[in-house]
């Protein structure tokens, strides 16, 4: 009997490692090794080499923390996060509530709003840059302006006022809203309907009162998840920014995400300073961890 249990156990262990093994190896090789290596590189003068020899201690950290361009990008993206996170949460929750309420063709509406999430960021960026918001009169945004008799704008090229944010923010919202909407729909469908029915019998209104006291508390878990994912995403902005504002030669000093700045520093075409780039990556990781912890604390479930 014991032998059979033992054999079954070792069989289970084998199956466990067969399934988990490839992922564990992948995670180790492509995530933990690079992170450790990056932390190692951040202590060296590592220009154009991943096997540096000149130890410089914390010099790269001092360098990057006194680097105006890097600090500017962290500052800009803290403001960006403060704007984009609430906007995304409110809009995707509103979409979820609307789509969840339609009784007719619900699957159709759900797919329609989710589809943009399946679109590549690069492709969407090019569409935004070249057909929606180019500076020429024939661009879609400028055509619409023309209907109202307004002059065409350069959009991406206009710095005063910073119209490029219109392009960047609309692209990001279009790409992301559907995904967060889906998370909210899933959470909405887990709120038991009998709670609403009981509340209505007790005289609660079907609108705001039900939303405030039943829907919102029921969504708490989803809200925290969406907020956290969104916050991390905001600091990790890269794709649409790089593809709309940048190119292989460079990126303007405004709306420059920390990752874009670090990309040019450590992997850019001019010269690869992996030491400073790694120091910046470590600093950015700490900033993201801190922001996530803070937001978790604010939204912690009251005990």
């Amino acid at each position: 009997m014991r032998a059979i249990v033992k054999r079954a156990n070792s069989r289970n262990t084998l199956v466990f490692w067969l399934f988990v093994g490839p992922f564990a190896i992948g995670l180790l090789l492509f995530t933990y090794v690079p992170i450790t290596w990056s932390a190692y590189l951040s202590m060296f003068d590592a220009r154009n080499t991943v096997t540096p020899t000149e130890f410089v201690g914390l010099a790269n950290y001092i360098d990057i923390l006194t680097d105006r361009a890097f600090l500017d990008s962290i500052g800009t993206f803290t403001v960006f996060a403060a704007f984009i996170v609430p906007t995304t949460v409110v809009l995707s929750l509103a979409l979820a509530l609307l789509v969840n309420q339609v009784t007719w063709a619900r699957a159709f509406f759900r797919s329609v709003y989710f589809l943009p999430f399946a679109c590549s960021y690069v492709v969407a960026s090019l569409v935004w840059k070249m057909s929606l918001f180019p500076g020429v009169d024939s661009g879609i945004a400028n055509t619409v302006l023309g209907w109202f008799g307004a002059d065409p704008e350069a959009w991406i090229g206009t710095v005063e006022p910073p119209l490029y944010w219109v392009v960047l923010v609309t692209a990001r919202l279009w790409l992301q809203l559907g995904f967060y909407m889906l998370l909210f729909i899933a959470a909405l469908q887990r709120i038991p309907t009998h709670l609403y029915e009981a509340a209505w019998i007790d005289g609660a209104s079907t609108g705001w009162q039900s939303f405030r006291h039943i829907t919102l508390p029921g969504l708490r878990g989803a809200l925290v998840a969406v907020l956290t994912l969104n916050l991390i995403n905001a600091y990790q902005a890269f794709d649409e920014f790089y593809n709309i504002l940048g190119d292989a030669r460079g990126y303007p000093p405004f709306a420059r995400p920390p990752l874009v700045y670090l990309y040019y520093t450590s992997l850019g075409s001019g010269g690869q300073d992996l030491g400073r780039g790694s120091a910046g990556a470590v600093v950015l990781a700490l900033v993201i961890a801190l922001a996530t912890l803070l937001s978790g604390r604010v939204f912690r479930r009251p005990t």
Partner: peptide
């Protein structure tokens, strides 16, 4: 170097485009 070039083009961009 690339770093010097980034610093100069950041400066020129701020002067020319942001005043």
């Amino acid at each position: 170097s690339a770093r010097a070039n980034t610093a100069l083009s950041d400066a020129v961009s701020r002067i020319a485009r942001q005043g």
